[in-house]
């Protein structure tokens, strides 16, 4: 059993009359990839937004390691070691790849808001940025302006930015969305490498990728969790077959 990096208990989120997330409890362990799957509108992105702090839960608790972060704003959660990528690519489109990632490294440096001395002088930041760019497979592209990158490269960039903040847990919302076969292969390999020394929570619709990557699986439907456990257990769970995986019969 690995150390728990992130634990959420009985999270609830209502949008007016709609319970987008209800009574969701989830553990994410260091060294593991925990995949969350479920049909459109199941509440997966809402769950990620609750965990990252972009939405506040109506009820429930979130612990990052031993710290209760339920009341933390998103930036404070990030500084506490939580990194995330969005379902829709969210980068600084007018800055170079290097500047994008350097900013991420700066956010976690010892003096992120220093007002004197140029950014060049923080060599530690530059080194961390260069490492993250290399690990995300973008070496050689660091001077390119981000909005000139291909869609796949932008997703890599987003992961590089997350890496540069040196998080303990990474939340990925559909990292493979809109990606071609060969691009997807690269990202899958990259995601598989993220769990070393970290916890990863991934939401993904691509079942092949999910079963390839996941160490643990949670299935959501209509805001609730209908099954959670090891992938082979969940795969054969009757409620899951009925509700969801039936659509993916040949995969499951």
């Amino acid at each position: 059993m690995h150390e728990i990096a992130l634990r959420a208990e009985c999270l609830q989120k209502r949008f007016g009359g709609l319970a987008a997330v209800r009574d969701v409890s989830i553990d994410v362990h260091v060294g593991e990839i925990h995949a969350v799957i479920g049909p459109n509108g199941a509440g997966k992105s809402t769950l990620i937004n609750l965990l990252s702090g972009e939405l506040f839960a109506n009820a429930g608790e979130i612990l990052l390691g031993a710290t209760n972060i339920t009341a933390f704003a998103p930036d404070r959660r990030a500084r506490a070691g939580l990194g995330r990528a969005y379902q829709k690519t969210t980068i600084f489109p007018k800055f170079s790849v290097h500047e994008n990632v350097r900013l991420a490294a700066q956010a976690r440096s010892s003096a992120p808001l220093r007002m004197f001395g140029g950014v060049q002088s923080d060599t530690e930041c530059h080194r961390r940025a260069a490492d993250a760019i290399g690990n995300a497979g973008l070496s050689g592209r660091s001077q390119v302006i981000a909005d000139r990158l291909s869609h796949g490269e932008q997703r890599q960039l987003e992961i590089a930015m997350v890496l540069a903040t040196d998080p303990r847990i990474i939340l990925l919302d559909e990292p493979l969305a809109g990606m071609g076969q060969s691009e997807a292969r690269e990202i899958i390999a990259l995601i598989a490498s993220l769990k070393i020394g970290r916890a990863v929570l991934i939401v993904e619709h691509d079942m092949d990728a999910v079963f390839e990557l996941a160490d643990r699986l949670t299935v959501m439907q209509d805001g609730g969790v209908i099954a959670t456990g090891l992938p082979q257990e969940v795969r054969t769970h009757p409620a899951v077959r009925a509700a969801y995986l039936g659509n993916y019969g040949d995969v499951a």
């Binding site: 972009e54 998103p74 990030a78 990194g83 600084f92 900013l103 903040t165």
Partner: peptide
């Protein structure tokens, strides 16, 4: 949004 989620 991105700046905030990086921790700024």
């Amino acid at each position: 949004r991105r700046a905030r989620s990086l921790g700024f």
